[in-house]
């Protein structure tokens, strides 16, 4: 739990995974929770399968829209290798919430130069003290919709920020289409229920 009123949150993934929507929800929760917030992202080529990252900064007064290297309190990764790639942005004692998803890009396929890490989450746990691995794809499949990965991860994240649950729920409601509200709330709760146990290094 981030106990103070400030948090630097970095959300990473691959184009099309829903990184930007997640950062939108988190930012609005912070604003609705009465804090200042800024978020920044680069999304020029995001639809073409490149890396997408979004910085969300929360606090009583936020200046820079981007987080300094090494200053991330909470990392939320939609893809495990992207989680590992972002490690250097984190404080050692930060929390990394990582989906077990792995997406291997074409450039690595059949390449002798580039390698996709064997155990990205394990590698990350050697660097960061608190890594939480989330079987987000599996939970989403159980709920019958792969797009829910997003909300599941937000549910996990909510355990580490001190905003009351109803702000999360109300904000989610305002961001998803009516017919998906129920299932998103369920996905959020499934995320909240994910064990916060650390991955052992």
């Amino acid at each position: 739990m981030i106990t103070g009123t400030s948090a630097n949150i970095l959300i990473v993934g691959v184009g099309g995974q829903g990184v930007l929507l997640a950062s939108e929800v988190i930012s609005e929760v912070a604003m609705n929770g009465g804090l200042d917030v800024k978020k920044s992202e680069i999304h020029g080529m995001s639809q073409r399968g490149g890396v997408v990252s979004s910085h969300v900064k929360i606090g009583p007064k936020v200046y820079s829209p981007t987080i300094g290297e090494g200053q991330v309190d909470i990392l939320m990764a939609f893809e495990q290798a992207e989680g590992l790639r972002a490690a250097s942005w984190m404080r050692k004692d930060g929390v990394a919430i990582v989906s077990r998803t792995s997406l291997i890009p074409a450039i690595v396929t059949g390449s002798k130069v580039h390698h996709y890490p064997e155990d990205a989450i394990g590698d990350l746990a050697k660097k960061i003290t608190h890594v939480i691995a989330v079987p987000a794809d599996q939970i989403a499949a159980e709920l019958g919709n792969p797009r829910l990965v997003n909300t599941i991860l937000i549910g996990v994240l909510s355990n580490h920020l001190s905003f009351p649950e109803d702000i999360w729920i109300e904000t989610l409601k305002s961001k998803v289409r009516r017919q998906f509200v129920e299932i998103n709330i369920e996905a959020f709760h499934r995320g909240q229920a994910v064990s916060t146990e650390r991955v052992k290094a």
């Binding site: 184009g15 073409r48 290297e69 200053q71 250097s88 942005w89 890009p105």
Partner: peptide, 19 residues
Amino acid sequence: VEAPEISSEEFFPRPPVLC
């Protein structure tokens, strides 16, 4: 200056590609 505690490593690239 508070330097990042974790050093960055060489990593495979993930450039944008044609859909």
